[in-house]
Design a protein around this nucleic acid. Structure first.
Length: 556
RNA sequence: UGGAGUGUCGCCAAGCGGUAAGGCCCGGGAUUCUGACUCCCGUAUUCGUAGGUUCGAAUCCUACCACUUCAGCCA
């Protein structure tokens, strides 16, 4: 059944080899978040790989909360993952809480390992453990408790569970090799004493397994065959394999394979920094449209398809890479172009009076010219309209084919107009433009024979509503390609933040937009893509500027 | 002489001994009632460096160089 599968990346190649050699029989993966923060685009890469890989080989993926540290976790996060995954279009086969499903079994495995002489209870303090670990170039030294009798360790471990030791006093350690060149193999801690209320298991446990021990056991107990993770766990693989061998020891063991993580230029992803900005009120929340969290991107107007297409376009490798932000934007525009409803919106209005026209009439407007059956909606053309200020110029640059004094331009979906006069206010600014329309030039019925170079958008005074637009710039100043690194090096948060990265402005939009629902996506013609924000009220619609259209017009 | 990993176009990335895919970005052109979309065309004599093996190497061998990463009772 896998014979006709063609591997498209190194992970799939490895899987294929395993399947052929009989090392594994099926492809079951897991997406294992620790419920301690919101997901961002970096996590997305991992989840996409987990789901797409399993799916390709006819397997499945579980969502498993890797909740082994109660001091950092919260059930609300766990719930958010289920929602995020659903939005991304992935359905986990099972939603599992490691604490709830595996803690008892992992404990049993630990006892067995003690009995087999593979683990011992150590009474070194955290500081002593650290001091005896050695350095990158020097071996560590054995714990004085390393060779205590098995029976003694077993009893002490049971006492640990029974709550007879204070937090931090004792640990269960794997007996491996304190001189191992890989620091992870120098008798790593398997269990620590920690009295903290767990969001799932409450106060049932006062000892909790460490990630390095718990993860492989969870994978094995769950039947996961491929534990795909980012490259930072590469050094842990020997330990993963050691625990599988000494703690599990059954056929078809799970295999960990690592891939490089996603880095984006100029984007802040560090959990603690995102949290800091949220707490200090510098952003709207975890779902701030400037954040690359799943909820943030969603609120901004990015689509799940765009995010997935982007990540898939990157390919899969183990080399360090940092992707320019515009690579993501390409896929956002691409998808939005296909699904966004077209609408007219004037962001900076200039009033235009059509001197040879009275009243109003309806015009048809395609909802989406790229989709055959997207239908049309009507808008009105009348004697008073608004156009955008940058579509009119008194001193036009070369090749400017919008409206100029004495020139003609087409109003998208309506008539060709000619500007005859500019009426000024007392302060010298433009009050309004006097234009004439060409009667037989209506879109769809144009018999004027006129050819105009430009087409601009407009909104009719009798058919428009004022709305609020939220405009975004990158949260981080351009010069900080790696903001997390800058922060880690001590640069102040306020220094790396782009001032005024979110601004509000007003716009005049077609009336039909008043029936838009939150997250509905529109293309404001010739401007960009906008999404209705959840902060909208009946009287004040707020549109988030998702992304601009590409602008091929270059002055000079 | 700690360990592990990575080095192919500005950014990603195929390539798996037979003579450098593709995408993004960029440049040029066509089309256009969105200066969008779409469509053409262009962009590495060269694969971290130096040797070697071979009829033939980005692919094999040797050495070197650069970068990333690991010393939580975090995950």
């Amino acid at each position: 059944m896998y014979k006709d599968i063609i591997a498209e990346n190194f992970i799939e190649e490895e899987i294929l080899k395993d399947l052929e050699s009989g090392r594994s029989k099926e492809v079951i993966t897991r997406c294992p978040p620790e419920p301690s923060g919101y997901w961002h685009i970096g996590h997305c890469k991992a989840w996409i790989i987990d789901f797409e890989t399993a799916n390709k080989f006819g397997g499945y993926t579980n969502l498993r909360m890797d909740d082994t540290n109660p001091t950092k976790e919260d059930g609300d996060f766990a719930n958010s993952y289920v929602k995020d995954l659903e939005w991304l279009g992935y359905t986990p086969k099972n939603v599992i809480y490691a604490s709830e499903s595996y803690f008892e079994k992992i404990y049993e495995i630990a006892e067995n390992m003690i009995k087999n002489g593979d683990a011992y209870v150590c009474e070194l303090t955290p500081e002593e453990v650290s001091n005896t670990r050695g350095t990158l170039t020097e071996p560590g030294t054995n714990s004085p408790y390393r060779d205590r009798p098995i029976e003694e360790s077993l009893q002490m471990f049971r006492d640990m569970r029974a709550g007879k030791y204070e937090d931090g006093k004792v640990t269960l350690r794997a007996k491996i090799d304190m001189a191992h060149p890989n620091m992870n193999m120098r008798d790593p801690v398997m269990y620590r004493v920690m009295r903290a209320h767990h969001y799932k298991t409450g106060d049932k446990w006062c000892i909790y397994p460490m990630y390095d021990f718990a993860h492989p056991m969870e994978d094995a107990l769950e039947g996961v065959t491929y534990s795909l993770c980012d490259i930072s766990f590469e050094d842990h693989r020997p330990l993963y394999d050691w625990f599988i061998e000494h703690g599990w020891g059954k056929p078809y063991p799970p295999r960990q394979i690592e891939f490089s993580k996603l880095n984006l230029e100029n984007v802040l992803l560090g959990k603690r920094y995102l949290k800091k900005l949220v707490n200090e009120g510098k952003v709207l929340g975890w779902d701030d449209p400037r954040y690359l969290t799943i909820v943030g991107m969603r609120r901004r107007g990015y689509t799940a398809k765009a995010i997935k297409d982007f990540i898939k376009s990157l390919g899969l490798s183990k080399s360090d890479s940092t992707i320019p932000f515009n690579a993501l934007e390409f896929y956002v525009r691409n998808d939005l172009n296909n699904i966004a409803t077209r609408a007219m919106a004037v962001l900076d209005p200039v009033k235009v009076v059509i001197t040879n026209y009275k009243g109003s009439e309806l015009c048809e407007m395609q909802n989406n010219p790229n989709i055959e059956d997207a239908g049309v909606h009507t808008m009105t053309f009348s004697d008073t309209i608004y156009i955008d200020s940058d579509d009119f110029s008194l001193n036009p640059p070369p090749k400017y084919n919008r409206l100029v004094l004495g020139g003609m331009v087409r109003l998208k979906g309506a008539y060709i107009i000619k500007c005859n006069n500019v009426v000024y206010k007392e302060d010298g600014t433009i009050d309004y433009l006097e234009c004439e329309y060409i009667p037989n030039s209506k879109s769809g019925n144009d018999t004027s024979g006129l050819k105009v170079k430009g087409t601009i958008h407009f909104v009719s005074a009798d058919n428009c509503t004022e709305v609020t637009i939220r405009n975004f710039k990158n949260l981080i100043k351009d010069e900080y390609l790696d903001p997390s690194k800058a922060l880690a090096e001590g640069v102040d948060v306020d220094e790396i933040l782009e001032p005024d990265s979110m601004t509000e402005s007003k716009a005049l939009v077609e009336n039909f937009l008043t029936s838009a629902q939150v997250e509905d996506k529109f293309q404001f013609m010739r401007k960009g893509y906008y999404t209705l924000d959840k902060d909208s009220t009946k009287d004040n619609l707020i549109f988030n500027h998702t992304i601009s259209l590409k602008d091929g017009f270059k002055v000079k």
